[in-house]
């Protein structure tokens, strides 16, 4: 089992992706999706040195909705910042955030979250993964932002991946 499915969740996700893309659960598509789900993770296995152990599904769901809310809020903030940039230039700057999260998969998820939320750009990660350099579109208070970032995103990811 382990050798046939090195990443069972990825296999399942690819299978569902194929069926949703084709809007069909005919036997042919079930089979094609299953072949994709088995072959793709097998071919990708050498590229993924770290197995993913996912824990606490409810934390994932909570994080999902939290990120969704933050995306909407920061979309409005950035849009407002763009429209009013003539009278009030946005206070953009870099922030150094000390990280406690070390897991590579968790950091990948964190980089996805920071990119998807408008107004933050993942700029550099220290070699020892202890510091993250983030560019923020409009920043009021450094300490408050770092606190929110660690509480809202880093802590749930540590719970999920570590």
């Amino acid at each position: 089992m382990k050798r046939l499915f090195p990443a069972p969740w990825l296999s399942l996700a690819l299978w569902i992706l194929w069926l949703v893309l084709n809007l069909s659960i005919s036997p042919g598509h079930l089979l094609l999706g299953a072949i994709l789900g088995v072959l793709a993770p097998l071919m990708m296995a050498p590229l993924r040195p770290l197995p993913i152990r996912i824990r606490r599904p409810w934390v994932i769901i909570r994080l999902f909705f939290l990120v969704g809310r933050d995306v909407i809020v920061s979309n409005l903030l950035v849009a407002w910042g763009v429209l009013t940039c003539g009278s009030r230039p946005p206070r953009s700057r870099f922030v150094k955030i000390p990280l406690d999260l070390r897991d590579a998969n968790g950091l990948a998820a964190l980089s996805m979250i920071t990119t998807v939320v408008p107004g933050t750009i993942w700029s550099e990660l220290a070699l020892d993964r202890s510091i993250l350099l983030l560019h923020v579109f409009d920043l009021d208070d450094d300490a408050q932002f770092i606190e929110h970032f660690k509480q809202a995103y880093e802590r749930p990811l540590m719970e999920i991946f570590e």
Partner: peptide, 15 residues
């Protein structure tokens, strides 16, 4: 500047 300019296009790819 460049980094500031990277933020607004994210509006199109998200909301």
């Amino acid at each position: 500047d460049f980094f500031q300019r990277m933020h607004p296009p994210a509006l199109a790819s998200t909301l």
